[in-house]
Write a protein that binds this DNA or RNA. Structure first.
Lengths: 204, 204
DNA sequence: GTGTTACCGTAACATCTGTTACGACACTCC
DNA sequence: GGAGTGTCGTAACAGATGTTACGGTAACAC
């Protein structure tokens, strides 16, 4: 059913990667819609339109399921951010663009913010997942620091670090606030906040 | 055992309020230490040093347990913030103080940040808990907006709102980042970020 | 004493959970 | 044809989970 015909050489092998991706998407969907407390093997299988057997054949356990969905989302975000960075002309435009993509400006990104929070909540008390979070998040912080340094070449490292921290924190905090109270924090409100913040730092 | 003797008039009545508080503290402890996935009636009872029977006699169900623990933490935070606001002389000092208390500057506040995130994660897909979050969070936002307006009397409402949003978001985001990666975001780093941010907005 | 009432611990219940085991099916190679 | 192999659905299992029900105990009223 899910099998893709492909070349003769791989006729027998099912496309594990595609199955993992489909299942990971189901994880995101449940994380955003019902919350981590309802993220079970069975609910994931139902959402992905397959059986629990397939889920367990693709992943060794529930934790691996979470870790893979997390890594996949990170990889997608990375691609999106790198494209944004390549497409925009100036470091300042790139900075604004990549911070904006991390906020909850539309339905999709609001869902993503919920998913990130679900992963975070799942990693409390779990050293492996925390380590994953740190690795990914430090990469994200380093990227923002680099862009801030490019956007303000005359700043010292301490000033760059503090500003980058504020930007990263504000974007993340705003996304979280917005996806739980979209009436209070509309897309316009978030963008106004971001512009206000960049302007205050002289990075507009 | 838990019974408090008290006056003759209330000799028979157990102190329900104190029991609820003790149980709610157990909820916080588990939320911060093991995460919401391990928050069960039994684990709460074990942490509180009582039986599941008592927990269920004090609260009608698991959701009420979460809601009460949430409200209690909010009330405590409110008292703390109001005292800070009363103790500090200027609106700017008060603004900095209440934002700082919301970050993860010490062991206790880092735990609290984890607890807040647990409540947030638990409210995904639960309209009642989301409504609770909105009510409390709007009160928090209004307070910060009021302080920003007091600290910068010549600003227009839009500017006040944007700045307050940035401050609230950055404080919340910083707390979250810090409690998952305290090596990257020490108390000094967080305070430097806050000062940098207030300085950028001309609110230092 | 007896009766009453609040308190709460124990145990049961049905359901849900992650995980494992087994078997059926389809395809390839001989 | 038959053997071998990868694929995956079904069903079972042990344990955990939220919740309910029952029974005992202690304090009070009389």
């Amino acid at each position: 059913m899910l099998r893709q015909r492909g070349e003769r050489a791989i006729a027998r092998r099912a496309d594990h990667g595609a199955q993992q991706e489909r299942i990971s998407k189901a994880v995101w969907s449940i994380l955003a819609g019902k919350g981590i407390e309802h993220l079970t093997i069975r609910s994931v299988a139902a959402e992905a339109g397959c059986t629990t057997g397939l889920v367990m054949h693709r992943f060794p356990g529930r934790k691996a399921l979470l870790a893979h969905a997390r890594d996949l989302l990170h990889a997608r975000t990375r691609v999106r951010v790198e494209r944004l960075e390549a497409e925009t002309g100036t470091p300042r435009a790139a900075l604004r663009a990549i911070l904006a993509q991390g906020m909850a400006l539309n339905e999709d990104s609001a869902q993503e913010a919920l998913v990130w929070m679900g992963f975070l909540a799942a990693s409390v008390g779990d050293d492996d997942l925390i380590a994953l979070h740190r690795k990914n998040n430090r990469a994200w912080r380093d990227r923002v620091e680099r862009l801030v340094a490019d956007a303000a070449p005359d700043w010292g490292p301490a000033r760059v670090r503090a500003a980058a921290f504020a930007l990263v924190g504000a974007a993340e905090g705003a996304a979280q606030l917005a996806c739980f109270d979209p009436e209070s924090y509309s897309a316009e409100t978030q963008e106004a906040m971001l512009d206000s913040l960049l302007d205050a730092y002289g990075l507009a």
